[in-house]
Nucleic acid binder design. Structure first.
Lengths: 255, 255
DNA sequence: TAGTGGTCTAGACCACGGC
DNA sequence: CCGTGGTCTAGACCACTAG
């Protein structure tokens, strides 16, 4: 194995050998992927890998730490490293900011704010925002358009405790979601995707036939554990889809 | 700042101070989150942080590297580290293995294999699997059930070049997707989610009314760059949803 | 007590980009 | 040229777990 004095392992280097930690990582990943090491099997200890690859412990440690972050191995201090049980066959789908996504496609983005009001929380909204039924909440409805075509009907509820000035904003230039992102950034988010039919009113607002199935993206966000917003985004099924591309090595590349 | 001789920063330690790299990470994350450092702003160099926090460069490097992995900063070798442009408001949704998911809920899982055949690739299938139209491909159709209720109609095409024995398998005990996972593990995957209407035949197979909107999950997988399988999973909208919960600090926790 | 992983240090060499 | 980040080393101390 080549050492510190060896050719570059720099990002840009064209035909450079992989970084040492990456070589160790690849080796372990291959043993797991090939089935040579089964789930639950013990992975060689850091010290064993140090001697086997003739690298320092920090290098082996980085390889194992990153594999653990990816969920391929489980590390237990004082015990050892093990092949993760049952490669949780989960994959990731990306949910991107609509405005950025549309503009990145080079298309025109517009947002019609249909409604901004203060209402009493329904049972559902109160539960979602962790408030009492009947408490005052902010409510907004907008239609987002791509090149003039409605792409999303956004039905949003906002917790006045964390965004008291929401109701007094001028939403002609900044859409509600954008305002919240800038002023009440969240640190936790929950998403749910459903396929449903639109109501007659929703179909009208989205300028689509009522028979068209829709994608419903429901999102809740929190900041420091306090609910910020609860929003239902309704997309005509023939005008919107969620997608992702994922490479095994760790970094997802979305397209 | 406390040093090597300081109290534990071990995982298990109850009231131990955070690890030094974590403290540096937290500091930078706070400056960004609070808005003190705007997108595009330069983050102090590793050397500056080393002197400011009186820690070693490796420690600062780990903090910055992990922030870069999370997409909060962008690092350019030879130039510097910068606050990431407009936190690409993307979030992740998990797509989990259906069989595991159902069993994890404590429900009964079953799979009816409707069909396994060899067919000539249509234009669409040929494009998806990177084959020529009319080339021979394997085709299977199954219905997956949760407690007897159809949850997914799986329409799968398999590249015979990478899974030549697919057609000769006995799928009474192992379902097609499971066979592929075990024998032709993939290293790249693409997912797309749509909301569509089921055809009459599909509605019958799923034992659902034809008017019910459906979630269509289309997946393609590759191994070493070669397409493995192209599968369309159709879910009745009222019996299935995709969901995720994401914490800001890095590791998504799905529920 | 011996082995494990978790963290940290104080150096080091390298490729890159801007000056 | 210098400062930047990317990587690597050969040690070190610690807490935890098991025999």
């Amino acid at each position: 194995m080549n050492h510190a004095a060896s050719p570059a392992s720099q990002t840009g280097a064209p035909n450079a050998p992989a970084a040492l930690y990456q070589q160790v990582k690849d080796y372990i990943a291959r043993e797991i992927q090939s089935g040579a090491w089964r789930p639950g099997d013990r992975v060689p200890s850091e010290q064993e890998l140090v001697t086997r690859f003739s690298v320092s412990r920090m290098t082996v440690n980085r390889a194992l730490r990153e594999l653990a972050e990816q969920g391929r191995v489980v590390r237990v201090a004082g015990v050892g490293t093990f092949v993760a049980e049952h490669k949780p066959q989960s994959t990731l789908l990306s949910v991107v900011n609509l405005q950025d996504e549309i503009r990145m496609r080079g298309h025109d983005y517009a947002c019609d704010v249909i409604l901004v009001e203060r209402v009493a929380a329904s049972i559902e909204v109160a539960a979602a925002l962790d408030l009492h039924t009947g408490e005052s909440v902010f409510h907004s409805v907008c239609v987002h358009r791509e090149d003039g075509v409605p792409i999303q009907l956004e039905d949003r509820y906002v917790n006045p405790r964390v965004a008291p000035d929401f109701i007094t904003q001028d939403f002609r230039n900044t859409q509600p979601g954008e305002y919240l992102l800038r002023n009440v950034p969240y640190d936790q988010v929950e998403h749910v995707v459903d396929a449903i039919s639109a109501t007659a009113e929703q179909a009208t607002q989205l300028e689509m036939p009522a028979t068209q199935p829709c994608l419903l993206l429901t999102r809740r966000t929190w900041t420091a554990g306090v609910p910020v917003t609860f929003v239902r985004c309704l997309h005509p099924g023939n005008r919107y889809r969620l997608g992702s591309r994922f490479r095994a090595d760790g970094n997802p590349a979305f397209g």
